[in-house]
Structures are given as structure tokens and as C-alpha cells.
């Protein structure tokens, strides 16, 4: 990894953060969507305490994945609509640097939403989500589906039906993340011994690494016409 790679990644991430700070377009929409999802689930599961405890990790991850769909789509659509994706492609930087830069930006936006969601859900559902392991699972899971989300959003943004294509393509591919993250979070929240849920966290990390390598190799083909 050379110095120019890191400079390009840092430039792309700080550009995305600065632009988002000014527009609040992505994080605002993602946060509002996830807040509404959590509230709707909270009302729907209000009467059944057992069902609520069972469902909480599912609610967290489904809310995060759906919210991130909004963010991934918009993040790449902004590049495409302003033509700046062409400017990025024209620059003498590796496609991997563009991928990693966009990935880190997308991941940070989703993590911000997740960090707002965890205390909110702790308060609403009366369970302890503000736990070091729950936080680690959230970070690994969010990074994992941001990896595949960034790749597929780049693919989708080049088509006319990008809003429809991304969920159709992303949700089936996200299933391994969803299953492992939900199992790990459920074990942590229920206070089960680490031996019961640690394997799910390790599996989540392994899937994330596999997807990351796969996406780094594929990204340059996705960007070609």
C-alpha cells in the first residue's frame, strides 16, 4: 500500500464527511428512517415482552441494513449526478483507493446512525445494548455490509433503475451478515455465555474479510463501462 493510495483514501473520506456535514443529506435520512423503524417495531411488539426480547437484535440489524440502503444509494448517486464519478475515474489513483475511500465514508455514516440507535433501543426495549461486545459486533457487521453495499451501489448507480436494483441485489447477499450479526447480538443481549455467541462474531468477521478481498478485486471491473 503506497503513500499515494493512503492520500487518495484520506482525501475521498474527508471530502465525503465535509460534504455531508454541510448537506446532512445522507445521515439525516438514514437516522430518520431507522428511528421510525425502531419506533414502529416498539409499538408492534409492545404487548408481548418475550417476543420483544427475542426480536430486538433482528429489529436492530434490519433497521440498520435498510437505513444503509438509503445511504449507499445516495452516496454514489451524488457522485454520478454531479459527474464527479468521472472526475474520480480520471484521476491517477487506483480503483481500490476509490473503493476504500467510499467504503469508509459509507461505513462511518452507518456507524453514526448505529451509535444513535443503540442507546435509543436500550431505552425503548429495556435491554442492555450499550455493551462493549455489542458495540464490536455492530462495528464489524456495519463494516461488512458497507463493503458489499459500496460495491453494489457503484454497480447500481450506473443503471437507470438504481433505486430498485440496489435492494434487490444487496439484500440476498447481506443474508450471511444479517444471520451472524443477529445471532451474535442476540447472545450478547440475552446474557448468554461467550462460548455460545462468540463463534457467530468470529464468523461475521471472517465473512467480512472474504467479502472485502472479493470486492477489492472486483471493484475496477464494476467501474469500467
Amino acid at each position: 500500500m503506497n503513500r499515494h493510495f493512503l492520500t487518495a483514501v484520506r482525501a475521498i473520506v474527508s471530502k465525503d464527511l465535509r460534504a455531508e456535514w454541510r448537506s446532512r443529506e445522507l445521515v439525516g435520512a438514514m437516522a430518520l428512517f431507522s428511528l421510525l423503524s425502531v419506533l414502529v417495531f416498539s409499538f408492534a411488539l409492545e404487548l408481548d415482552k418475550n417476543a420483544r426480547e427475542e426480536a430486538i437484535s433482528g429489529v436492530l440489524w434490519v433497521s440498520l441494513i435498510f437505513a444503509s440502503l438509503l445511504g449507499f444509494n445516495r452516496s454514489l448517486a451524488l457522485e454520478q449526478d454531479q459527474g464527479s464519478l468521472d472526475a474520480l475515474l480520471l484521476a491517477p489513483v487506483s480503483r481500490s483507493a476509490i473503493f476504500v475511500g467510499k467504503l469508509l465514508g459509507n461505513c462511518l455514516f452507518t456507524l453514526l446512525v448505529a451509535l444513535a440507535l443503540l442507546p435509543l433501543m436500550t431505552a425503548l426495549y429495556g435491554v442492555q445494548l450499550l455493551d462493549g461486545w455489542a458495540l464490536l459486533t455492530t462495528i464489524v457487521g456495519v463494516f461488512g455490509f458497507s463493503v458489499i453495499g459500496t460495491l453494489l451501489a457503484t454497480l447500481a448507480v450506473q443503471t437507470r433503475s438504481r433505486e430498485a436494483l440496489l435492494p434487490i441485489a444487496l439484500l440476498p447477499i447481506c443474508l450471511p451478515f444479517l444471520l451472524t450479526a443477529v445471532r451474535a447480538t442476540k447472545g450478547i443481549v440475552s446474557g448468554a455465555p461467550p462460548s455460545e455467541w462468540r463463534v457467530w462474531l468470529q464468523l461475521l468477521a471472517a465473512i467480512t474479510i472474504i467479502y472485502l478481498v472479493f470486492c477489492l478485486l472486483l471493484y475496477r471491473f464494476v467501474l469500467e463501462e
Partner: peptide, 10 residues
């Protein structure tokens, strides 16, 4: 190019 290839929020 035809489009400015700039970032509007910068």
C-alpha cells in the same frame, strides 16, 4: 466535460 465534475457541497 459537459458537466462541471465538481462537488457542489465543497
Amino acid at each position: 466535460a459537459h458537466r462541471p465534475l465538481l462537488y457542489e457541497n465543497l
